[in-house]
């Protein structure tokens, strides 16, 4: 039986859509491939506040999801950090079984980022991708006016932009799919708005491999 949990850590309001796009597109792709999949936001993190850490979850399984009503991913196999300063300060590795993958949006190398990661022994691979650069974000807080949502809260709101992954989510999804194979590239690619950034990430991403030990 194959069962995978993906947890995306992002920042409230300003990068909320990016996080949501990642879990929604992976979940939708998995379902297209005939698997059982679910995407949701952390219920307690919302309504999100600007910059506050928020979590988005995805579960993919070849069997029906019996834990559909469980609030959090307790054992994430894959963790994505949408913004690189999140590497410090939160235990995003909590519950990760050995053999996990950590993906960070950063211009630093895996070598450099590794020192900040708690529980590295659980990782099979650390992936760094300069998503903001590939998606032409001069810096992450740039273009506030184009952000998906109003400044109050994203709770229940729909995006102003109907596009999926027009921005830094696209390279992150590319790195995620290429490094983990959670879904097939050909299933997810048609959904992605920023195909250029997606494809550039496939060659630009940096992967550091480990041999995880059981913890």
């Amino acid at each position: 039986m194959s069962y995978t949990e993906l947890t995306v850590w992002t920042r409230g309001i300003i990068m909320d859509k990016e996080g949501r796009d990642i879990v929604n597109s992976v979940s939708a792709s998995a379902r297209l491939e005939g698997k059982y999949a679910q995407a949701m936001e952390n219920y307690v993190d919302n309504p999100d506040r600007t910059n506050a850490p928020t979590r988005k979850y995805c579960r993919v399984s070849d069997r029906v999801l019996e834990n559909e009503l469980t609030y959090e991913n307790e054992h994430p196999n894959i963790v994505v950090l949408v913004e690189d300063t999140m590497v410090k300060g939160w235990d995003y590795m909590r519950g990760m079984p050995p053999g996990g993958t950590l993906i960070i949006n950063t211009h630093y190398s895996p070598d450099y980022m590794l020192r900040f990661v708690p529980g590295v022994e659980r990782l099979a691979q650390l992936v760094c991708v300069d998503a903001a650069h590939l998606a032409h974000h001069k810096w992450l807080y740039y273009r506030l006016g184009e952000l998906g949502l109003d400044r109050l809260s994203t709770e229940g709101a729909a995006e102003r932009s109907k596009l999926i992954a027009p921005d830094i989510a696209a390279p992150l999804i590319a790195a995620l799919v290429k490094s983990t194979g959670i879904v097939k590239m050909e299933t997810i690619l048609p959904m992605i708005a920023n195909k250029n950034a997606f494809e550039m990430a496939l060659s630009e991403m940096k992967i550091m491999q480990f041999n995880p030990v059981a913890v």
Partner: peptide, 13 residues
Amino acid sequence: IRPYTATMMALAQ
């Protein structure tokens, strides 16, 4: 008021 808020926001849209 959460969680009903999501309903009123969807209707507002």
